[in-house]
Design a protein around this nucleic acid. Structure first.
Lengths: 89, 89
DNA sequence: ACTATATTTAGATAATTTTCTAACTATTAA
DNA sequence: TTAATAGTTAGAAAATTATCTAAATATAGT
């Protein structure tokens, strides 16, 4: 399992996650939103998949990607640790 | 202002933030906790400072670093966007 | 003024990452 | 079975990053 933090460090990958916010999308659909080749997007999708941030499911000829938000717990936990015991504005 | 996400992508930098969780610490104190040279830690501190995740204040001969948690809003906002409209476990 | 301590800056090297083109695999359609 | 479409894999080049040693700066003490 790859590192969540470094998967999120790249702006293209964060934009991909944002694209998947409301709908699942095929690899080609996703690639269509970026000024980048398909292999590059495929690489980014692989990293997101390894980090568990997306899941991939083959649908005939295409591969449908979906957001998986459960992984964010790790990040929220880290931030909670650092911000615990603070008062609100 | 440097990028918050990439500042947090490095495990050494996250460990530094964790060290600053309850107390402010000098650069040397921080460096003492890692199997890494002082210049390397100084470099990481610079990146954290640029990202606004820590503040630095000169205290005589030393430099005291403190955690700044306000920057986490950006990250929490991103995650909130992606997780909005989900039910709880 | 010298010496010691704390920290940063500079420059180099090694490792990692991003992106590309070309080639490959799998599925669908003619 | 041949051709077209969707996607991934392989390999290379360019850029970025992490780390080191050596040198520089700033403060404090003798």
């Amino acid at each position: 399992m790859g590192d969540t933090w470094s998967a999120l460090a790249d702006p293209t990958r964060r934009a991909i996650l944002h694209l998947l916010r409301h709908q699942n999308r095929t690899a080609g659909d996703i690639a269509g939103h970026f000024a980048m080749t398909k292999p590059s997007i495929s690489h980014h999708l692989g990293i997101l998949r390894q980090a568990g941030l997306v899941t991939a499911q083959k649908k005939g000829q295409q591969v449908e990607y979906a957001l998986n938000t459960t992984v964010f717990q790790e990040i929220l936990g880290f931030i909670a640790q650092l911000t615990e015991g603070e008062k609100e504005a």
